[in-house]
Computed example of a mutant assay.
Amino acid sequence: MKLYIKYMVSLRCKLMVKYELEKLGLHYTSIELGMIEIKENITNGLKQELKSNLALSGLELLDNKKSILIDKIKNVIIEMIHYSDEVPKTNYSDIISEKLNYDYTYLSNIFSEVKGITIQHFIIKHKIEKAKELILYDELNLTEIAYRLNYSSVAHLSNQFKKVTGQSPSFYKKIGKKRKYNLENL
């Protein structure tokens, strides 16, 4: 039996879900971001108990088909941007469509209707968050970051970064170094 969980976006969330399943004596065959597969069919009472326990951890068991689909889209995007080191060889839209076995236009329309932003805008937000993280790690230069995040050029990354954050990547890097320096001197 597959169950879908909202806000399950990290390894820490997976651990929380494993803990809750074990507490209820449920056995899982797989746990992925946003989805668990349980060996047993569970009763409505047990499902409600799991839902309540997950809610205490900030997670939400999903029942609505649209919500489940939106969460799947978000998880595919988060996985592609935050947890994969591979540079996509095709468009994000093709990857999302292929992984979820739906037409991209259909996915895009539902996502926009429910979330109030486009899938593309959601992707950009996450790419910029990943860029911020990579800039602060200071292991890659901007050219390498742009390549890794599938930008056509450093200029394109810089323009989007400034549009989303209001700062240039180099200014953001300076602020990050100053902040780190200040924290180390406390």
Rank of each mutant, 00 (worst) to 15 (best):
G45Q: 06
K72M: 15
S57D: 15
I68E: 08
L26G: 04
I95S: 08
I110S: 06
S30L: 03
D63T: 13
N41Q: 00
L15C: 06
F111W: 09
H27F: 04
L69R: 13
E86N: 13
Y104Q: 02
S112P: 03
I73E: 06
K65G: 01
L62W: 03
E20A: 03
Y19W: 05
G34T: 07
I78D: 02
M35D: 14
K39H: 00
I96N: 01
T43V: 01
E37A: 12
D71F: 09
L100F: 08
L46Y: 01
M35Q: 15
D71Q: 14
K51Y: 05
L54D: 06
V87A: 11
Y102S: 00
Y104V: 02
D103P: 05
E79Q: 12
L26S: 14
N91H: 12
T105G: 14
S108Y: 15
L24T: 00
S93T: 00
N101K: 10
Y106H: 09
F111E: 12
K65N: 15
K74N: 15
M16E: 14
M35I: 13
L15V: 01
S57M: 13
K66T: 13
I81G: 08
K115E: 15
L69C: 11
H27Q: 12
L107Q: 08
I73P: 04
K14M: 12
V87Q: 14
L59C: 05
N101E: 14
E32M: 02
K72W: 11
T90H: 11
Q48L: 05
H27A: 13
E60R: 10
M80P: 11
E22S: 12
L56R: 14
L107H: 07
M80K: 15
S30Q: 13
L107M: 07
L33S: 09
L62G: 11
E32F: 06
I42G: 04
E22F: 06
I95Q: 07
S84P: 10
L61F: 02
E37G: 07
L26D: 10
S93K: 01
T90P: 10
I81R: 00
M35E: 15
I42Q: 01
Y92T: 07
D85E: 14
Y92E: 15
E32K: 00
N109C: 09
N64I: 01
E98H: 11
D94A: 11
L107C: 10
V17S: 09
D94Y: 01
D103E: 15
Y106W: 06
L56K: 13
L46G: 03
V114F: 14
M35V: 15
L107I: 06
S112W: 04
Y19K: 14
L33A: 13
Y83P: 04
Y19F: 04
L61I: 05
E86F: 08
E49Y: 01
K51H: 03
I96D: 04
K51R: 10
T105Q: 07
S112L: 03
K72Y: 05
F111N: 12
I110F: 04
S93R: 08
I70M: 01
E79K: 12
E32Y: 02
K89V: 13
L50T: 08
I38C: 02
G25L: 02
N53V: 03
L15I: 02
I96Q: 02
M35G: 11
K14T: 02
I110Y: 05
K99S: 15
E20P: 02
L54N: 06
G58E: 05
E113P: 09
S52Q: 04
M35A: 12
L46A: 10
I36Y: 02
L50S: 00
E37V: 12
I73H: 09
K72A: 14
N41D: 15
